[in-house]
Amino acid sequence: MEAFSVLANSQITDEGLKAANAALSSGFAYGLAAIGSAIGIGFLVGKSVEAMARQPEAAGMVRTTMFLGIAFTEALALIGFVVFILAGLG
């Protein structure tokens, strides 16, 4: 009950609302951006390991391609991270 009265008495300012929105959205931005990249990198590395195990003589080429793939896949998660910095902390 007390908590509710505190809620009722507290004043929601414009600035506070903005900050709350920023914190919330920055959290979502990073979390959502990470999902796709996480799945993608997991899939990519798993397949690369499979390929290296099947053909160890091609391991060098597979590894290079894997890093390239990771670099591209990861980009979107990193943009999410930058958005998180910009919206949440900037």
Partner: peptide
């Protein structure tokens, strides 16, 4: 753009 962000964001994180 992605080159910049990739390098910067990885190290920043």
């Amino acid at each position: 753009f992605s080159l910049t962000i990739r390098l910067c964001a990885n190290l920043l994180a």
